[in-house]
């Protein structure tokens, strides 16, 4: 198990480096989708640590993504010139920016994780949603971050290699954590908090840790996003963006990393497919808006999935039935 994940990580990094060499020959539209897939894998896998493995239902992952996106973009814009314009200089700067973005998001995760200690289930979901709105609100009022106008002008440093190497790193960290004695604390917190405490597990520490690690990678994903799109706007990190990520985790099966990765890929391609469908001449005009608005489909998917298959499409241990 241990060796396998290490090899997997190595293969993924090498493959992304190799593909990265041919990136120039990929059609820009597909390239865009590929990068989005990588970013969504990071987001969904990291949220899965919180929602799936630790059982703390967070609805504010886009808030952490925003913290990372703005944190890294701000660093790039303010200090981008410091290390010069050589390849080594810009790469170092980019890595610094991503790390900073991740750390700022982790700090935000700490701020959310601490109140989460006293809350469960629905309450926690609403509070994380509230935090998402608060982070958005702060950015909307922060002049140095472009406030309502958005923030642009970062260099396009995100490429295929960075995106997928970091996606592989996220998967590696999450898998290594949950498949260790140390990390079994996360699963214990999810399954039964009281029993976990009785077995000597500091549930507080694990919950906060899940939020901090999850937020860190969401922040890194935000940094990648900011340095790919080269323009970010507070509305791009709203509640609906959080829902996007939650749907990936639920569809993939909470607590199943492989399933969640599959779902992230599927749900990145699906809206594109639907958009293409909306332009097909044979489609009745009345159905075009449904194809263009993925949320109608997503919401139905959520409802039907919860009623018929709450453990998600791709299995996983699923949600626990609990007596009243």
């Amino acid at each position: 198990m241990i060796e396998r994940t290490k090899i997997l990580l190595l293969v993924a990094v090498l493959a992304s480096a190799a593909i990265s060499l041919f990136a120039g020959q990929i059609n820009p539209y597909y390239y865009d989708i590929l990068i989005s897939i990588g970013i969504n894998i990071i987001l969904a896998t990291s949220l899965n640590l919180v929602n799936g493995y630790t059982g703390q239902f967070s609805l504010g992952h886009a808030g952490f993504m925003a913290a990372g996106a703005y944190g890294s973009a701000w660093l790039s814009l303010a200090f981008g010139y410091v290390l010069g314009t050589s390849a080594a200089g810009t790469t170092t700067m980019f890595v610094l920016a991503l790390t900073t973005g991740g750390l700022i998001a982790a700090l935000a995760g700490l701020a959310v994780g601490i109140p989460s200690l006293r809350l469960r289930g629905d309450y926690l979901a609403i509070v994380t949603l509230g935090f998402n709105e608060i982070i958005k609100g702060v950015i909307q009022n922060a002049e140095p971050l472009g406030a309502q106008r958005g923030l642009g002008g970062m260099g396009q440093h995100t490429n295929f290699f960075w995106t997928f190497a970091l996606a592989a790193l996220t998967v590696y960290v999450v898998l290594n954590l949950v498949h260790s004695t140390y990390g079994s604390g996360f699963l214990a917190v999810r399954d039964d908090e009281i029993a976990a405490e009785a077995m000597g597990i500091n549930t507080t520490k694990y919950k906060v840790l899940a939020f901090v690690i999850g937020a860190f990678f969401a922040g890194v994903a935000g940094g990648l996003y900011a340095h790919f799109k080269q323009f970010i706007h507070p509305e791009g990190f709203n509640f609906l963006r959080s829902v996007d990520i939650v749907v990936m985790v639920i569809l993939g099966g909470m607590g199943s990393t492989a399933g969640v990765i599959l779902a992230a890929i599927l749900l990145t391609i699906l809206p594109e497919g639907l958009r293409a469908l909306a332009h097909q001449p044979w489609l009745p005009d009345s159905l075009r808006p449904i194809a263009e608005n993925r949320m109608i489909l997503y919401s139905l998917l959520l409802i039907i999935l919860m009623i018929t298959r709450p453990q998600g499409l791709f299995g996983g241990p699923g949600l626990k039935r609990r007596k009243a």
């Binding site: 699963l187 039964d192 009785a198 607590g255």
Partner: peptide, 12 residues
């Protein structure tokens, strides 16, 4: 301790 109403970690 053990629990009167068994509290194992159900998914493990």
């Amino acid at each position: 301790r053990t629990f009167q109403n068994i509290r194992l970690f159900g998914s493990l």
